[in-house]
């Protein structure tokens, strides 16, 4: 009875240990992979057209969903913000509230989450499929490095397009907030913009927002690429990898956001 329990506990422990070691190996693999991608990055700059093509694809792919989401997020921010601010008689501050929330947090974070779901999954599926259909092997046999030719351009495309998309998100979000606050609710037009201009700081707010979205760009793209490259070369393997891209990117974005915010906000 007692020894039965003991073997059960041992079995569970062993299972957990195996999982842990596996994850550690995978993480090591991911780090090595990232190293290679950086090492081979020269190639993707020497042949810029490859990278530009990928920027076009990832950017265009996520553009519509990001613009539409930004518009709604901006409108909701204005509604919620107005509701609270007017209780304290400072409803003209609505412009600042919308702009700061977008530039500092929601722009980079929501863009990254949408990017992971739209462009990230597409990257993982594409690379996984290229692997499953031996396209990467074929490339290797032609003495062309798949990391240099396929992975690195996609990486830099992601890193470059993320801040651009986040900037667009913030702009369209502010527009959405404006439409709700000024024409709809009737906040003073001049106050809305002047308050915003006076209280959004270039260094503290905008630069920090850009830093965040660059970091998210690195994380999301690298995760998507690694999951695709590491996927078992089967239909099931690729579909699992795609799911993992969304889960891991989202967690990474939220965790990184917390860490970066805690460094950026000086008490």
């Amino acid at each position: 009875m007692f020894s039965g329990l003991l073997t059960k506990v041992a079995k569970v422990l062993r299972g957990v240990g195996h999982k842990l070691v596996d994850q550690l190996w995978r993480f090591g693999g991911a780090v090595r992979f990232s190293g290679y991608v950086l090492l081979y990055s020269g190639e993707s700059f020497r042949r810029l057209h490859l990278t530009i093509r990928e920027i076009y694809f990832t950017g265009v792919m996520s553009l519509i969903i990001i613009l539409v989401s930004a518009f709604f997020v901006g409108m909701v921010l204005a509604l919620q913000g107005y509701n609270t601010l007017q209780k304290y008689g400072s409803s003209e501050a609505i412009g600042v509230l919308v702009a700061l929330s977008l530039v500092r947090e929601l722009g980079p974070v929501v863009t990254a989450l949408l990017f992971a779901g739209r462009a990230g999954t597409a990257i993982t599926a594409e690379i996984g499929l290229m692997k499953a259909t031996e396209q990467l092997s074929a490339m290797e046999m032609m003495a062309v490095s798949p990391i240099a030719r396929v992975v690195a351009p996609r990486f830099w495309a992601g890193v470059i397009s993320m801040p651009l998309l986040a900037a667009l998100f913030s702009m369209v979000g502010v527009l959405g907030g404006y439409l709700v606050a000024v024409p709809l609710i009737g906040v003073d037009n001049g106050a809305f913009w002047s308050q915003m201009q006076a209280n959004v700081d270039f260094r503290e707010d905008i630069v920090n927002g850009v830093i965040k979205s660059v970091v998210f760009g690195v994380a999301c793209t690298m995760i998507a690429l690694f999951e695709g490259f590491d996927a078992p070369p089967t239909a099931e393997g690729v579909s699992r990898a795609t799911t993992r891209t969304v889960v891991n990117s989202s967690l990474a974005v939220l965790a990184l956001d917390f860490i970066m915010t805690s460094f950026m906000i000086n008490p």
């Binding site: 290229m130 259909t133 031996e134 396209q135 092997s137 074929a138 290797e140 046999m141 032609m142 003495a143």
Partner: peptide, 14 residues
């Protein structure tokens, strides 16, 4: 590898 050409089982076209 520059001296080799390989035809993969299902073509492996890009």
């Amino acid at each position: 590898r520059r001296k080799m050409g390989m035809l993969f089982q299902f073509g492996a076209l890009f």
